[in-house]
Nucleic acid binder design. Structure first.
Lengths: 132, 132
DNA sequence: ATCAATTGCGTAATGCTATAACGTGTGCGA
DNA sequence: TCGCACACGTTATAGCATTACGCAATTGAT
C-alpha cells in the first residue's frame, strides 16, 4: 500500500507532527493550526484518522497523543508490531521494531485463537538524557 | 509488597470490577455504585489509583478502562510485563505474562539507556468465540 | 454532459475521561 | 493534645473525542 497524495488539511497536520520534537495531542495540533484556518477539533481528528490509516502517523494511547512515524521511507504497516519508549520528562519518543517480540506475541495470540487487529506497546520512563 | 486492607470505597470498586465480565470505565463504575453512595468521578478515580498501586487492578490504556487482575493470588507487580488481548466484540480480556518478551524489551531499553517505569502491551482484535 | 456516489470540509453541539481545588472527619504517634 | 497522614465528599473545570448536519469538490459510469 502506497500513501496517496495528502489533502491540504492532512498535509498541515502531518507537517506539524513532523516538525514537532515530541508527541502532540489533537488539541495542541489544533492550536498550532489556527492561523491556517483550523477552527474545530474534528478537522484535526479527521486528518489524523487518514494519516493513521496510511501508516505515516502513530497514536500513543497512553498519553493521548500522536507522532509522525520514524520511518518515512518504508510504510509502517509492513513492520508488524511497533514499540515506543516515551520519556516522561522531555517527551521524546523512540520507536522500535523487533521480530522476536512480534513473533512471540503472535505465537501466544495464535494459541489463544485470538485474531489480532491493532496493537499497542508503550513504555514510559526516562530517556538517557533525562535520567539524572 | 502485600495488599493492605481495602477501605470501603476501594472494596466497592474492586468488587464491581471483579464481578464484571469485561473492563469497565471509571464512569461506568460510578453509575454502578450510585446506589452505594457514590456521586462523583473522583471517588472512583481515587479508589482506582490505590487499587492500581496495590497491583490488584490494571488499566487498559487503549480503551480507557479498568480490569481486576487475573491473578488474585500473586501480586501483579512481581510479574514484570503484562500483555492483554482485548476482544472488541465481547470485551473479554486475556491476560498474559511472558519472560521472553519481557527480557527482549528490557534488553532493548537498556541498550537505549532508557529507564522504564510503566509499560503497556495491549492487543485489540477478536477472541476465539467472537471471530466468526 | 449528467447524475449518483464518494470523499473531504466546516460548524455546532455534545459526550466521555480525568483532574484541580476546596474543605471535613478520623486515627495515631510525638 | 497537637500535628500529621490519609481517606472522603463536593463543585468546578480541563482535556480528549465523537455525533449530527449540511455543503462543496471529485470521480466515474451511463
Amino acid at each position: 500500500m502506497t500513501t496517496p497524495q495528502l489533502t491540504k488539511n492532512q498535509a498541515l497536520v502531518f507537517d506539524t507532527l513532523t516538525k514537532a520534537e515530541a508527541p502532540l495531542s489533537a488539541y495542541t495540533i489544533l492550536d498550532k493550526l489556527r492561523d491556517h484556518g483550523f477552527r474545530a477539533p474534528l478537522q484535526v481528528y479527521r486528518a489524523l484518522d487518514k494519516l493513521l490509516e496510511y501508516g505515516v502517523v502513530h497514536r500513543l494511547e497512553s498519553i493521548n497523543s500522536f507522532v509522525a512515524c520514524a520511518h518515512p521511507d518504508e510504510n509502517c504497516h509492513s513492520h508488524g508490531l511497533v514499540a515506543f519508549a516515551i520519556c516522561e520528562s522531555c517527551g521524546q519518543v523512540i520507536e522500535f521494531h523487533d521480530h522476536e517480540v512480534d513473533h512471540r506475541l503472535m505465537g501466544w495470540l495464535k494459541s489463544q485463537k485470538f485474531k489480532a487487529e491493532k496493537s499497542t506497546i508503550e513504555i514510559r520512563g526516562h530517556c538517557a538524557s533525562c535520567a539524572a
